[in-house]
Design a protein around this nucleic acid. Structure first.
Lengths: 335, 335
DNA sequence: CTGTTAGCGCCTTCAG
DNA sequence: CTGAAGGCGCTAACAG
């Protein structure tokens, strides 16, 4: 591998001149410059980003740690982050914690050791509490993505979970539903907690009986299935809301096992949802997270933070779309 | 940020001793060792991976360039690569070419400049031909993923596209289908070329009339739609095969526009397919790519190549599952 | 407009 | 069992 020294020797200039033509960091006479360029061509010289990063203590790279690369929403966020990073000449270092706090800790540490310029973090549900507080003392800026922590002074980007859920509940109530079943998931995840809060906002707005609603917490599939069976047997709940894609999968499977039809037997809505929602039946009413844009926004926040390290932390909420489809439109209320 | 010098000073040892306890690269007296460890604790010292990489000229990182992060199959491959890389203590640098040869070139260059230990590459359909030949001269090992180039001496991992398609065609023929429509896509993509080849293998096996089959090439949605409409109007084709997820989307939309039912009016099968294929209707017969495992296999190949730089290149083909579902089971042939 | 030089933080011979 | 010292490839003062 050719180095700057080789280029300099061949071009008959000093290595600092080579550096300056490479980086455009000071004027160099056209003639000299072209000699250098030719030498670069000739040697096939390529800059060593590592050495450069070390010297400048700036790596032009960012790290992204996601908590579950399996969920489509996260895959989309990764995509958005990659896109925006590339557009700004940043290399993306990707890690997946798989909802494991220990892996998460290791991933963060590894990325910090690699001297990334900034870190984007979608924390695991059971994230080690000290992780984020430790990160506050770090000079490497951090942006929290999707998994937000209201009380911590980080830049954050998420969706308007609470408002979207509220709107969804109001919509269902307006159609006549009075008793709903919410598959809430792991409410330690801030986004899921917010969605549950929004549910009760909506219940209040629509003056439904708060005590009469069915809330299923946790992610255990069997338990979700049981709870749905019970609720269906009682026969009072007329609509189900799943608070994430995996929760929707659990719910849909349970309904299938029970032989219940959507929306004939029960209405169904989900957050995040599935790809190509109009191609397959049932067409599910979905609150859609702008996951790609959230990734883009996270990178922007990070770069702005680098420019202004001392400005106060900002939380950006992106609007979620409420896409109404057949799964909540055909339920037959008794006259 | 504390450096090894700080640690050495506090522990009252030389910096080389610090290095050796850090890397376990030579024996050091337990007492000394624990002094060093304490000093590390105390200073919050963290290794600078960049400096280390520069010195060892080995970065413990690998680069992955995918051609379309949007396709679910690629998202899964990324996931598999990440998983296996992390398990081996490698950091993953991710780039997306978005099927743009220019972006692809830049991505490869960037990753090379970052001194990745190896590169995994799912080439764009229209990849610059010189890209791969240039890469052959590089000492950085390269593994081709999914987008294979039979004639080039790289390690490669793909799926058994040809055989799977052949099996699918035979299955359809056994059911009575004699005239098929293939949405073949961009056959510059090797996997798609292989699938098309496999189609003709199957046609031959089943002794169908090769001239009577409908092949739609390209990715233009409108053209695919037109071709399907024409084929339906003629009324001879009884089954459609989509050779990738986006192609399936195009096909399904066209059928929907035409008001055709699957499988009543026409049978439908797809490669790669959709998530949760049993939850939504129509349940599509799918040739499923083991995308995650392909990612894993690519990392393994890469590491083995690093251990044995001169062994001959290997191509690994992973088996694809033919998942039969309703979309090909209910077509009513006239008696 | 160009060259010289001192490190960035680390690993690794080579001596002791 | 431990220390001293050189240098990986590059940037950025500082001098001319």
């Amino acid at each position: 591998m050719a180095t700057m020294v080789d280029v300099a020797r061949i071009a008959g200039v000093s290595i600092s001149t080579v550096s300056h033509v490479l980086n455009g960091t000071r004027n160099v006479e056209p003639k000299t410059r072209s000699r250098v360029l030719k030498a670069i061509e000739q040697t096939g010289y390529r800059q060593d980003t590592l050495a450069r990063a070390m010297r400048r203590s700036k790596s032009d790279s960012i790290g992204l740690v996601v908590s579950d690369a399996g969920e489509p929403a996260f895959a989309e966020m990764v995509h958005g982050v990659e896109q925006e990073a590339a557009a700004r000449g940043l290399t993306l270092l990707l890690a997946n914690s798989a909802e494991d706090p220990e892996r998460e800790r290791r991933a963060v540490r590894t990325l910090l050791e690699r001297r990334v310029d900034g870190l984007i973090l979608a924390c695991a549900a059971a994230a080690t509490p000290s992780l984020l507080t430790d990160l506050q003392d770090e000079k490497t800026p951090v942006v929290l993505l999707d998994r937000l922590y209201r009380d911590l002074p980080f830049d954050q980007v998420g969706a308007d979970n609470r408002d979207s859920m509220r709107a969804l509940v109001r919509h269902l109530a307006a159609q006549g539903h009075r008793e709903l079943l919410v598959i809430a998931g792991d409410v330690r995840v801030p986004a899921l907690e917010e969605r549950l809060d929004g549910f009760f906002d909506g219940v209040r707005d629509a003056q439904l009986d708060a005590g009469g609603q069915h809330i299923i917490q946790g992610t255990d599939r069997a338990r979700i299935g049981d709870a749905i069976r019970v609720a269906l047997a009682d026969g009072n709940a007329t609509a189900i809301i799943a608070c994430s894609t995996p929760l929707a999968v659990a719910g849909l499977r349970a309904l299938e096992d029970a032989g219940s039809e959507i929306p004939g037997d029960i209405a169904f809505a989900t957050f995040d949802g599935f790809d190509n929602p109009d191609l397959f039946r049932p067409r599910l009413t979905t609150v859609r997270q702008p996951a790609f844009d959230m990734g883009v926004a996270a990178v922007r926040l990070l770069m702005e933070r680098l420019d202004a390290p001392d400005s106060s932390p900002r939380t950006v909420r992106l609007h979620q779309d409420l896409q109404l489809r057949e799964s909540t439109e055909g339920f037959g209320f008794p006259a």
